[in-house]
Design a protein around this nucleic acid. Structure first.
Lengths: 150, 150
DNA sequence: TATTGTTATACTCTATAACTATA
DNA sequence: TATAGTTATAGAGTATAACAATA
C-alpha cells in the first residue's frame, strides 16, 4: 500500500473527525458542555455507573485527562463520584439528575448533527465504516512502542 | 438511520482518530514535532510555498490556531514566513532547509505507523474509506449554524 | 506486585472578538 | 466592502512521572 495514499486517508480521518468535533462543540455550547464532555456523559447515560477505568476505555482517553474532565463536570453538578461499593481503589461515577437532564437535552439538540453526519451513507455503509474504524483503532493501539526507523 | 448507530459511528471515528493521533505524537516526539505540526509540515513539503489561508484549508484548522502553530514552528526554525510577492495581505509560508530535513526524518520514522494504520485494509478499501470520510467532512462543514432542537 | 486513581506540572491546541492592513 | 492575518485572552484537553491507597 503506497504510503502517500495512507497519509491521505489519515488526513481525511482528521478532517472528518475535526469537523464533527467542531460542529458538536458549537452545537452544544449553550448547554455548557464540550464535545469531549458529551462523550463522557453519553457513556454514563448508557451504563448508569462506571469506574474511571471503564470511562477511560470507552472514551479513548488518558486517566489523568479523564480525571480533569470529571472534575469539571463535577463542579458543574453534572456527575458525581462515590467510593466503589466493592473495590476500595475505584470510584463509581454516575450522572446526577441534572446531568441526565442536560445530557437528554444535548442529545436531542445534536440529533440534526447525527442526521447530517450520516446523510451520505446507507445503513450498510454506516455499519461498514464503523467496523473499519474500530479495526483501525484496535490495530493502532497495539504495541505502544512502535519500532521507528530513521 | 437510527441515531444510536450514528453515535456509535461517531465514537469509532473518534477512537480511530485519537489512537492514530496519539501514536503519531509519541512516535515523533524525539523530533520535537507534534502530530498536528507534522500535518502542517507535510502540507508544506508537498507544495513548497503556501499562504496561511491555504494551510488553514489543508489542515482543517482555525486561522488563529494555525498562526500559533506556525509561530512555534518558526521559533524552532522549521518554517519561515515572508511577505507574499503579489498579495500584500498574505504571508508566504515555506519549510526551511532544516524544516525539510526534519520532515523527511519524521516521514520516514512514521512509515511503520502508516503501514500499521492501513494493515487491515485493501487498496480499494483505503480509497473507499477516504472517499466516505471526505464526504462526511464536506457535509458536516456546510451550514455553520445548524438548526438545533430542544 | 499490580491496579486505581491523584497530584503537580507544563504545554499544545483551540477559538472568539476586536483589530490592522491590504485588495 | 471583503479578505488575510494579528492580537489578547481564556480555557480545554493532553500527558508524564511520582505518588498513595487498595487488591
Amino acid at each position: 500500500m503506497p504510503s502517500t495514499r495512507v497519509h491521505e486517508l489519515a488526513l481525511s480521518l482528521r478532517a472528518a473527525y475535526l469537523t464533527l468535533h467542531r460542529q458538536t462543540e458549537t452545537g452544544l455550547a449553550r448547554f455548557g458542555v464540550t464535545a469531549d464532555q458529551f462523550v463522557v456523559l453519553a457513556s454514563l447515560a448508557r451504563d448508569d455507573a462506571l469506574t474511571q477505568r471503564d470511562l477511560v476505555a470507552r472514551t479513548t482517553s488518558d486517566p489523568s485527562t479523564l480525571r480533569a474532565m470529571l472534575v469539571l463536570l463535577e463542579r458543574r453538578g453534572l456527575v458525581e463520584r462515590r467510593r466503589h461499593p466493592t473495590d476500595g481503589r475505584a470510584r463509581s461515577v454516575r450522572l446526577t439528575t441534572r446531568g441526565r437532564r442536560t445530557f437528554n437535552q444535548a442529545w436531542s439538540a445534536s440529533e440534526p448533527l447525527r442526521q447530517r453526519f450520516a446523510a451520505a451513507l446507507s445503513r450498510d455503509e454506516v455499519a461498514q465504516l464503523t467496523t473499519s474504524l474500530n479495526e483501525i483503532a484496535i490495530l493502532m493501539s497495539r504495541s505502544r512502542r512502535p519500532e521507528l526507523v530513521d
